[in-house]
C-alpha cells in the first residue's frame, strides 16, 4: 500500500457514520413504486383454509393486498390487528383484505393467524412467485388495488388505522 493510500483507511468509516447519522432523520413510510397505476398481476394461491385465493375473482372490489411473515416482529405484529379491524369495518362496503405469507413455515404462519384471530383470507406464497411479481423487498408491504384492478398505492412498513382508513376512503 502506498503512503497516500493508507490514509484512505480512516476515511473508510465515513460512509458508515454517515449512514448511522442518517438514522436520526425521519422515516418516510410512504414511497413511490413503479407498480402504482399498473394493473395488479393476477395470481392464484391456496389459502390456509384450503380454499383458492384468486385475485382475478376479486375484480370490482377494493383489495388490500398485504405481504407478511410470522417472523417479522414487531412490524407485522403491530399491523395484524389493524388489518383485522379494517376488514371488519369495510367488508360490507366492498373491501377485501388478502394476506400473503412469505418465506415462512406453515406452522408458524398458522400460529400467527390464530394468535391475532385473523378472519380475512390468508395464503402462503410457498414458491415466492407472488412476492417477486409485486417486487416485495421485505415485510410488511401492502398494495391497495382499486375496483378496476389497478394498483393505486403501496405502503411499506406497518399500517396504522389512520393510513388504511385514508387509503380506503379514497378508493371507495
Amino acid at each position: 500500500m502506498t503512503r497516500a493510500m493508507r490514509w484512505l483507511v480512516p476515511l473508510s468509516v465515513v460512509p458508515v457514520l454517515a449512514l448511522l447519522a442518517y438514522g436520526f432523520t425521519t422515516n418516510p413510510r410512504d414511497i413511490p413504486s413503479p407498480l402504482v397505476g399498473r394493473p395488479a398481476a393476477p395470481f392464484t394461491l391456496t389459502g390456509f383454509d384450503g380454499g383458492p385465493v384468486a385475485l382475478a375473482a376479486l375484480r370490482g372490489k377494493v383489495v388490500v393486498l398485504n405481504f407478511w411473515a410470522s417472523w417479522c416482529n414487531p412490524s407485522c405484529y403491530d399491523e395484524a390487528p389493524v388489518l383485522e379491524r379494517a376488514w371488519r369495518t369495510y367488508r360490507e362496503r366492498g373491501v377485501v383484505v388478502v394476506g400473503v405469507d412469505m418465506q415462512d413455515t406453515p406452522e408458524a404462519a398458522r400460529a400467527f393467524i390464530q394468535r391475532f384471530g385473523l378472519t380475512f383470507v390468508n395464503a402462503p406464497d410457498s414458491q415466492g412467485k407472488v412476492a417477486v411479481e409485486y417486487g416485495v423487498y421485505g415485510v410488511p408491504e401492502t398494495f391497495f388495488v382499486a375496483r378496476d384492478g389497478t394498483i393505486r398505492a403501496k405502503h411499506v412498513g406497518a399500517l396504522t388505522d389512520s393510513v388504511i382508513r385514508a387509503r380506503l376512503e379514497q378508493l371507495l
Binding site: 449512514l19 418516510p28 414511497i31 417479522c72 416482529n73 418465506q103 421485505g138 415485510v139
Partner: peptide, 15 residues
Amino acid sequence: PLLSEAMRGVKVSVG
C-alpha cells in the same frame, strides 16, 4: 433496514 431506507426510502425488517 437503515441502509435500505437511506438508499431506496424503503423500511424493511430483516428476520
